[in-house]
Amino acid sequence: MAIYFVLFFLTIGAVFILIASIGLLKMPDIYLRMSASTIAGTFGVASMLVAVAIHFYDFGIFLHIAGVIIFLILTVPVGAHMLGRSSHIIGLPMWHKTVRDDMKDKYDHENHTFKTFKKEGELKNDTKEA
């Protein structure tokens, strides 16, 4: 009976990873590609690791897999956020059907700060970072 649960979760994970890779290939923009790959990829790998935990049915393996899943859920959004921030700073173009861009012209390339986070007086007194 446990075999069917293992195969079910493995199938769910593999299909989600396939959807993530198709989204990475077919989306028109780096931000949309990043959204598709991170969300679907994380859920797919978490589902496949749950399948491994059901297959071995051991407490040590369960703790190990819970650690891996929690680590993935914590770190993948952080990496995606840094990727999106860097892509916006270096000026990668968005899709031509994008409706609005709130961070447009908000980055100060000389001081390496965002204008929304600083007042006007503090912006002039900052020293330039290395």
């Binding site: 593999a14 990873i17 790998v45 496949m48 993935l72 993948v76």
Partner: peptide, 9 residues
């Protein structure tokens, strides 16, 4: 991340 999935399979 797909490599992690392949290792679990």
């Amino acid at each position: 991340i797909v490599g992690i999935g392949a290792f679990s399979a």
